[in-house]
């Protein structure tokens, strides 16, 4: 796939100073029919502007809960979350507002099936009033073209492959120039080949925009291949178990996967996570 080197978004190589996230002692307790279920416990993570932060943990450990709290989909029980120093949620304000500065790409995809790809991408600027409809669609066409989706821009999401749909969804987020992109296991249901194409296109988009990425996955290779830092989480309740610094050079390509350094990092992450996966399996955690 060819991707032009034209910077995506009006932002030249990102806002280096914007897009930091601070999660400080975040806890979330669910009320499951009168029983208090701790989903996240005392979780602290710092994300620097422009960092690719990977959250890895066994299925159903509460990673998505963390992402939903940042996005403002549900309240937290204690602790605080800040973006660029401003409080998103914390004491006295349990739930963050949703907003176009933090955009989620969903696990099962959430392109509106009743809008064509171009209408989907143009939706954000149009409803926020940052661009008139016509201009928003022109911009959307341009960005879809850069992501290799020019030919299918006028199709409905139900008519394109899941890989194309997911790519369009990322474009739909990036057109708004968010400070943070929140990805919730976006490639979970894809086969290995499609996944590798998706990884390369995500990295290409990242190299152009340098947007902060908060990426949830349970795939260790994916985490190390994409991330600057890999945070391994414990099984429920979700706590930070170990942080692995990935100092691999960018831009990265698939040859990296066979390097010795990559193998060592994977081994380290695997050791940390397998213990948790076994615990999760034994406690009968439901896939979530």
């Amino acid at each position: 796939m060819t991707l032009s080197t034209f910077p995506l978004g009006a932002r030249p190589q990102g806002h280096p100073a914007l897009g930091s996230l601070s999660l400080r002692s975040v806890s979330k307790v669910y009320d499951a029919g009168g029983i208090a279920v701790p989903a996240v416990q005392n979780c602290s993570i710092e994300v620097a502007p422009g960092e690719v932060c990977m959250i890895v943990g066994p299925s159903g450990c509460g990673k998505t809960t963390l992402l939903n709290a940042i996005a403002g989909f549900h309240p937290i029980s204690s602790g605080e979350i800040l973006m660029d120093g401003a409080l998103l949620c914390g004491p006295g304000r349990p739930q963050a507002d949703t907003g176009a500065d933090r955009i989620v790409v969903f696990q099962n995809g959430a392109l509106f099936p009743w809008k064509t790809l171009i209408e989907n991408v143009a939706y954000g600027p149009m409803v926020q009033g940052t661009l008139p409809r016509r201009a928003a669609e022109d911009r959307a066409r341009e960005l879809l073209g850069e992501a290799g989706l020019a030919d299918v821009a006028h199709r409905y999401p139900g008519e394109v492959s899941s890989g194309m749909a997911r790519r369009a969804e990322i474009v739909r987020a990036l057109i708004n120039e968010p400070r943070v992109l929140l990805l919730d296991e976006p490639y979970r249901a894809m086969d290995a080949l499609t996944k590798s194409i998706m990884h390369e296109s995500l990295l290409a988009l990242y190299d152009r925009t340098r947007v902060t990425i908060f990426f949830i996955t349970h795939d260790i290779e994916e985490a190390i291949f994409l991330g600057d830092k890999v945070h391994v989480m414990t099984t429920r309740p979700c706590r930070l178990k170990q942080t692995i610094e990935v100092n691999l050079p960018r831009p990265r390509s698939y040859e990296l996967l066979t390097s010795e350094e990559f193998r060592l990092l994977s081994e380290e992450a695997r050791e940390a996570i397998s213990e948790e996966a076994i615990k999760a399996f034994q406690s009968g955690e439901r896939e979530a």
């Binding site: 176009a100 989620v104 969903f106 392109l111 509106f112 809008k115 954000g124 409803v127 987020a173 708004n176």
Partner: peptide, 29 residues
């Protein structure tokens, strides 16, 4: 209508009325 569409619309900065027009009406069709 899948909750994800409401959440996506919220993320993308829709007002309540825009959610009704762009998600509720076409999604229920």
């Amino acid at each position: 209508i899948d909750d994800a569409y409401f959440r996506a619309a919220g993320c993308l900065g829709s007002s309540r009325w825009q959610v009704f027009r762009h998600v509720v009406v076409p999604g229920a069709l």
